[in-house]
Write a protein that binds this DNA or RNA. Sequence first.
DNA 1: CGCGGTCGTGACCGTTCGGTGACACAAGGC
DNA 2: GCCTTGTGTCACCGAACGGTCACGACCGCG
Lengths: 247, 247
Amino acid sequence: MSDPVPQLPPQANRVLVVEDDPHLAAGVVENLRAEGYETHSVTDGRQALEWLGAEHVGLIVLDVMLPGVDGFTVCRTLREQGNNTPVLFLTARGDPADRVRGLEAGGDDYLAKPFHLQEFLLRVRAILRRWDWYRSASATAATAVLHFGGNEVDFRAFRARSWNGLAQELTEKEAMILKVLAEHPGEIVSREDLLERVWGYDVFPSTRTVDNFILRLRKRFERDPANPKHFLTVWGVGYRFMTEGES
Amino acid sequence: MSDPVPQLPPQANRVLVVEDDPHLAAGVVENLRAEGYETHSVTDGRQALEWLGAEHVGLIVLDVMLPGVDGFTVCRTLREQGNNTPVLFLTARGDPADRVRGLEAGGDDYLAKPFHLQEFLLRVRAILRRWDWYRSASATAATAVLHFGGNEVDFRAFRARSWNGLAQELTEKEAMILKVLAEHPGEIVSREDLLERVWGYDVFPSTRTVDNFILRLRKRFERDPANPKHFLTVWGVGYRFMTEGES
DNA sequence: CGCGGTCGTGACCGTTCGGTGACACAAGGC
DNA sequence: GCCTTGTGTCACCGAACGGTCACGACCGCG
């Protein structure tokens, strides 16, 4: 029982999304892609089984309520075929019993809609991490601790210490915005991008909301919030995050 | 900057079965293998400890009644050695006291024989799904006795002495919640995590229940329960346990 | 059968967070 | 310069969430 040299399964990075609501599917796919996953999507159970007959993925995101064959059945069918690909169920009802049914059908995890995007991504990552440990891929490049301009941010704990030594408790949204920005240092990130990545699949507050969170981040982390050096405005487009100030 | 992804062997997939009844052992092993787990099996406690001295697994399925060293002792010994591999106890008697004894010995879950294979597999999957989470727990010291802010908690006896010198008899749930929190000091633990680890994958008390136990723990151990320094709330997510208050 | 302890839930209330509108100001086009 | 458009900033409100309490179900025990 010696450890075999792990050969990276090529499907570790691939996700199949089975979801009939096009809006939800689009949001989910978008965010998975942004996290670095190769994503394919179909809208019902039969398509899913068909597609999986030819392709391999590391994770199947499977809606329970589907037109035609329901999600549980799809999963059970897969298992009977000897397909052990991890399955993450999505369900509309919050009924906890569904969770057990999902697990019994051979699923690996379960998420009730509406879900927090962050939680969804966390679970996806947790499941795929079984393969991910080989690759420090962009998928897991989620930096646990970020340093910039004397500030230190721990995304795992939503905590930070600003340049002046003050402890900062970040709220969820603040943390997520900062994280998205920090994942693209020096690049321009539009407000639309931020809305998609942070708010996710079906909620779209106005762009003013984004400005407000930028404001809050500046207050927390900029030495002179009125003359930001890290959270820069790109006029007419969006924002750009700089770890160290050179424009 | 980020935690280097460790080149860890895929232990998440490995299970050790310690069971003297060959019939039961065979059934369990066969089913675990069918589920894709790499499975090894031994028939008594001494073999188990020996084997574990050289190998690492993601889960130990441990019969309580074993020839020679009993299961509780095996588990306790492991914990004393700093081995925090999750342990799922199997016991012949349905005696609920065994559950407490299992917890006292440092076990993680408990199943009474005869059990449904389906349920057994579900528990195994539930535990291994969180493997990396358990793993980070074992990175922290396997403390049978926890000290924080003048409090002292003995998990084996469910007994504690609070900062003011008062003896505290913890209830089972209180102890388990505290244990789960304490295994991840400084990290956010979601209510879902707590529910799953303390109540199990198929029991669903409301989140208010969790809050209530936090409340009780605060009353027991916080100098000022209204301004907690150890049992901190993370808004919208869960709780965070701090052994010593540094902001 | 009553008793005490434990656990889970519902209800109430205060707090926090997120999102918006208003207004002032800055940037850029002509 | 002037006007338009976009952004900084603030104060505010509703909704969601957590803290807390009290009650009832349940269980083992005498």
